[in-house]
């Protein structure tokens, strides 16, 4: 074997050995360098145009937006998207920002985030479901059923809702916003009638708030679940099942205009 080859390989190896040693020293040094020399700054988010060939849809809200209870995992948003894709033959980009168990207070915080704002800004359509967790509190609302308390909860909720819708409108002046109303999952239970009354009232006030904004459409779902509610509910007797979500999606789909 050529001696020079061996020598040059050795030299290369020594060189890399030194480089890696420097890297190691630097890593340890940097790790304990104490205070950062350069604090990362928040850059203003670049607002470059998205590809405008397709539709951009943003879904905000709670487990209904997420699609909890739907065996296919789509939820009303997924079913709706499929329908839009079929109708318009355009690519649809969905950003589903729904979080299970989200209340109006949490959504209020969420819409204030910069990135969420940016997502809303580039949307052609915004879907919102909120309020179910405020009112029902996972069934808790049924157990301590007290009108006085509910009135206080509703007041808070309406404030949050107003803020959320304002924020959406502020970020995006043109997109249609569909705000999905509540149904009463407990309609067949003992206190179903009283609860229905509360939900109707709740929906009415929500619709009033949305009516104050341009292009924000309140979509009622109460009537969809009024008869045979158990056919449309998932086994937790709270979230809709696949059929229930389909009902909601069809209702929203019938409102779309292009």
């Amino acid at each position: 074997m050529n001696k020079n080859v061996i020598r040059s390989i050795t030299v290369i190896a020594v060189f890399f050995c030194l480089v890696w040693l420097i890297g190691l020293g630097w890593a340890v040094g940097e790790y304990y360098a104490g205070k950062p020399e350069k604090v990362p700054e928040v850059n203003s988010v670049s607002k470059k145009a998205e590809n405008k060939k397709g539709l951009t849809i943003v879904a905000l809200g709670d487990s209904l937006t997420r699609g909890t209870g739907d065996e296919t995992g789509k939820g009303y948003v997924g079913v709706l998207i499929d329908e839009i894709k079929e109708k318009t033959k355009r690519p649809v980009q969905l950003t589903n920002l729904g979080i299970n168990g989200q209340t109006s207070a949490q959504l209020r915080k969420q819409v204030q985030q910069t990135e969420i704002g940016r997502q809303i800004e580039k949307a052609d359509m915004v879907l919102v479901t909120i309020g179910g967790n405020d009112l029902f509190r996972g069934g808790q609302g049924l157990a301590d059923f007290d009108t006085g308390e509910i009135a206080a909860i509703e007041k808070k909720y309406l404030e949050n809702l107003k803020f959320i819708l304002e924020e959406i409108r502020k970020n995006n002046h043109n997109a249609n916003v569909f705000f999905i109303g509540l149904y009463n999952p407990f309609i067949d239970l003992d206190q179903g009638k009283e609860m229905s009354k509360v939900v109707r009232h709740w929906n009415y006030d929500s619709a009033e708030v949305s009516a104050a904004f341009p292009k924000i459409v309140f979509v009622p779902t109460f009537d969809l679940f009024e008869l045979k509610v158990n056919d449309y509910l998932y086994s937790d007797k709270f979230h809709p099942n696949t059929k229930g979500y389909r009902l909601i999606a069809e209702r929203v789909a019938s409102l779309l205009t292009w």
């Binding site: 480089v19 890696w20 420097i22």
Partner: peptide, 21 residues
């Protein structure tokens, strides 16, 4: 509170140092 901004090449050199070790 102590997050630092680094260029990727610096970060990589450090990573290489650690991998080497």
């Amino acid at each position: 509170s102590e997050v630092k901004l680094l260029s990727l090449w610096k970060f990589l050199l450090m990573d290489f140092g650690l991998v080497w070790f």
